[in-house]
């Protein structure tokens, strides 16, 4: 497959049906190399369906999906193999001689170097999700797909994971697509936020804010209120 010039991901007029229900309706999407895109929307809007199409876990009924061959996915549930030690979980998709060395490096990056030989059952929820992040990054992907990976984590762990994802993203320089229904998470991480509506991309917002502005300030609150309205939640939240 020849590399797609200009874009890392290109989705053209893509449709996906389940029975009579049209989940993705003539959807178009482009993601630039090393861009961080957040896909926002209420549950059932087709976010995860789109992500599965991009991951190659599902096929469209119509249209065309072009993605880099080197891609990885992080699921909401860490999906670690309970019968393999942590470092073996990281090397599951890796077919090279120095797999262990590479796995140890990535595990050190996510702060789990000392847990490499542990069984998955001994890990906390945040640690398990960091292992699954390491498993995604170990193959040096051009595109990382994240399917609500922090939804099940507590607030503090989630903030730490955001920092980690930001750091990893700059180091690995991969395009990332994060699916979430958490507006704050979207603002914290995205270069661009897409709001999904009725099976297609409804609106999009480019987020040109620095780290401080993403946490507080007028622009942030404005964007937050706007996004909440768009996904159908009243903006008068806390």
């Amino acid at each position: 497959m020849t590399a797609v010039l200009g874009a890392s991901v290109r989705v053209e007029a893509t449709q996906r049906r389940f029975g009579d229900r049209i989940v993705l309706n003539s959807l178009d999407l482009e993601i630039a190399p090393s861009e961080f895109v957040v896909l926002l929307g209420p549950s059932g809007c087709g976010k995860s369906t789109l992500l599965r199409l991009l991951a190659g876990l599902d096929r469209p009924d119509a249209g065309r999906v072009t993605v880099p061959r080197a891609r990885a996915i992080v699921f909401q549930n860490p999906r670690l193999l309970p019968w393999q030690r942590v470092w073996r979980n990281v090397t599951i998709g890796l077919d090279r001689r120095d797999a262990k060395r590479v796995a140890m490096e990535v595990l050190a990056e996510v702060g789990l170097g000392s847990q490499a030989k542990a069984w998955p059952r001994t890990l906390s929820g945040g640690e398990a999700q960091r292992v699954s992040l390491a498993r995604a990054l170990v193959s040096e992907p051009d595109l990382v797909l994240l399917d609500e990976p922090f939804a099940a984590l507590d607030a503090i762990t989630r903030l730490r994971m955001h920092d980690l994802v930001r750091a990893l993203r700059h180091r690995h320089n991969a395009a990332m697509l994060l699916v979430t229904h958490d507006v704050d998470e979207a603002i914290a991480l995205a270069d661009r936020i897409l709001v999904m509506r009725e099976g297609r991309i409804g609106t999009q917002h480019r987020v040109d804010l620095d780290a401080e502005q993403r946490l507080r300030g007028y622009e942030r609150e404005e964007l937050r209120a706007q996004l909440l309205t768009e996904i159908g939640v009243s903006a008068t939240g806390p």
Binding site: A55, G56, L57, A72, I73, F75, N77, R79, L81, W83, Q84, R88, I92, G93, L94, D95, R135, A136, S139
Partner: peptide, 27 residues
């Protein structure tokens, strides 16, 4: 099935899925 899907998505080939996911899982 989620583990099999994960392994495939991570780039594991057929043989890898059998030896690292299905058979140890069936032990």
């Amino acid at each position: 099935a989620g583990l099999v899907e994960m392994a495939r998505a991570a780039g594991a080939g057929r043989w890898r899925v059998i030896t690292r996911v299905l058979l140890p899982g069936a032990l």
